[in-house]
Amino acid sequence: MSRFGLKTIAFAAMLAITGAVLATAAGAQDYPIKPITLIVPWPAGGSTDISMRAIADSASKVLGQPIVIDNKAGGGGTVGPATMAAAAKPDGYTISQIPITVFRLPLMQEVSWDPAKDFTYIIHLTGYTFGVTTSAESQFKSWKDVVEFAKANPGKVTYATPGTGTSLHIGMEQIAAMSGIKLTQVPFKGGAETNAAVLGQHTMLQADSTGWRPLVDAGKLKLLMVWTGARSPNYPDVPTLKELGYPMVYDSPFGVAGPKGLDPKIVAKLHDAFKKAVEDPAVIATLAKYDMVPNYKNTEDYRKFVVEVTESERKVINSLGLAKK
């Protein structure tokens, strides 16, 4: 090939690279130009789904494009983020709510994702109020009743959770270990299923976030304890874990991330929109219905939090003997 031909090919290649770079820059500059998909890795109708819909609606007004909710339940809240990590383009049009299970489950079993490498963390948003409920018709009138029955009947007390490896599962196992009792977990996909399980007395207990609130308020379920640092203003007569002798607070805080390789300019736009959303009075009111409060961390602080919470969870998993072999 002639020297002229080689120069032509090199010039064409340079133009192609320059064009790609400019296109990427323009894409980040103009973002978003179409609807954004927000994966909620829990069933529709639960406290996470309802709160994330409120947050997404507010953020979409800032971004000028709709944010469409895609419920991908399963795996204790890990199926949705794992799907995004494996298949989504890093263009900002697919993002996901990230529960703590994403950091915890890799410590317990082999998974398809690496929380340190496969996500671009955007913003930390809020956390839950967790509680343990039982049927209003149950023999258990207090947590003390549960402990006494469990000591006399090891393994007979069953409890529903939204999945293995969730904060509800790990928290209940810590409580059982401190109480010297054996409880049996029955994992489900989310709050609608755990509500049905305990309401129908298919399980004796339910450990979940405040998707149980309508049933508790209606007198169909009894709330035995909450896992917050102070008593819930909605349930001032219900004791906290600490009051029952367990030195723990569990609120399982969560945020939003995209797949790895997301442009920092896109991350900044998403961060700013979601930050305004959690400051929106309408969003704060929705969160309050489920005893959730904003727990904002910026992008850098959220990355640091991921490292910290992973190490904290490693210690807990090891202490419970649940670490993968």
Rank of each mutant, 00 (worst) to 15 (best):
V256C: 04
S138L: 07
D280H: 05
T203P: 12
S96Q: 06
A16T: 14
Y159F: 15
D251T: 12
R213C: 00
S47Q: 10
G45M: 06
G321M: 12
L38K: 08
K89M: 14
K315W: 00
G46C: 11
K89F: 09
K289S: 10
G180Q: 08
D91Q: 09
P162F: 04
A218E: 11
A150G: 07
K144A: 15
G45K: 10
A197V: 10
V79H: 06
T161N: 08
N195W: 03
Q109I: 03
K260S: 13
T126C: 08
N318V: 13
V40F: 02
V40Q: 06
F274H: 09
Q97L: 12
K141L: 08
Q97W: 02
P66I: 08
P154Q: 09
A87V: 11
R213V: 07
T203K: 09
D272R: 10
I36G: 06
A85E: 05
P41Q: 06
A152M: 09
D30G: 00
K182Q: 15
F4Q: 14
I98K: 01
K156Y: 03
M292V: 04
V306N: 13
G46W: 01
V306K: 05
K304Q: 15
I122H: 04
V307C: 02
A73R: 04
G74L: 05
K222L: 11
G163E: 04
M292T: 03
A177M: 06
V309S: 08
V249K: 11
K141I: 02
G76Y: 07
A23D: 07
G200M: 13
A152S: 14
S138Y: 09
A73W: 01
T158K: 11
D30V: 04
K315M: 01
L262Q: 02
T8K: 13
E313R: 01
I33Y: 09
S179N: 12
T83S: 15
A25E: 13
P99K: 04
Q65Y: 08
V132S: 00
V147D: 08
I17C: 13
A192L: 14
T48C: 04
N71I: 14
D251V: 09
W113I: 12
R213K: 14
T78P: 01
S96G: 06
A273F: 07
D291V: 03
F4R: 15
D91E: 08
R53F: 00
I181S: 07
P162S: 09
D49M: 06
G261R: 05
P115K: 03
R53M: 11
